[in-house]
Amino acid sequence: MSPAETTIPQGYGKVFSRPQSLSDAPTTYCPGCLHGVATRLIAEVIDELGIKDRTVGIAPVGCAVFLYRFYNLDFVQASHGRACAVATGLKRANSDLMVFSYQGDGDLAAIGTAETVHAANRGENFTVVFINNQIYGMTGGEMAPTTLPGQRTTTTPRGRDVASTGYPLRISEMLAQLDGPRYITRQSLHDAPHIAKSRKALLTAFSNQLEGKGFSMVELVAACPTNFKMSPDKANKWLVEQALPAYPLGDLKVKE
């Protein structure tokens, strides 16, 4: 049954539907992948702020590489890790654009660390959505800088050994130390209340840009059920029990 074929009895009003900024294309994410929730929340915020006609998204290299297909927006696909530099170029060329990048933890916190730190430090007026799923999803589940100590990945088959591979990189805490950024927050996508908070954070981040207030980054902690080799439900439980203690939620920097 498609929604169009359903007859809703009189007296009922729609309280939840697909946002306008989303295209009809199905996502390419695995079943139960929280990338999908993040993708939707951004569309809702763009709709709410009425900025669809002036928004340019930046797709990363990673599981969100097809992001441009999922929206009715102008889009550019950036090379691995360089989204913050591409965003800088877009925004410097045309400050009327509303620019957001969408990046995984390999993209943003490993290969793209320099671009991210310096864009944040310059206080570039765009919005970064950072999906921390503690893994390289697209390439088959290798260790990310955010992988937890002891966590098994295809490149840490005996569990991440911090003595040789270092510790989970808390990039939001790092950026919060800088004078440049306006807003740095970490939220989670594992259940409806946290999704509501994530949405609010995204709304703040995009509103900041609209008001010319500078760099905002929303880190969204997510799970990768496929590479965790868990059911989506289990992966979300694991996220709460294992990942969230390493990645405390909340605003890390709010510059007035």
């Binding site: 530099a85 591409v86 170029g89 060329a93 671009e115």
Partner: peptide, 19 residues
């Protein structure tokens, strides 16, 4: 920019914006 890698990617962004 912070590096030549960033500089060329800024060019990529600005070019995409049409300047």
């Amino acid at each position: 920019a912070e590096s030549e890698v960033s500089a060329i990617n800024m060019v990529y962004g600005a070019a995409a914006a049409g300047v």
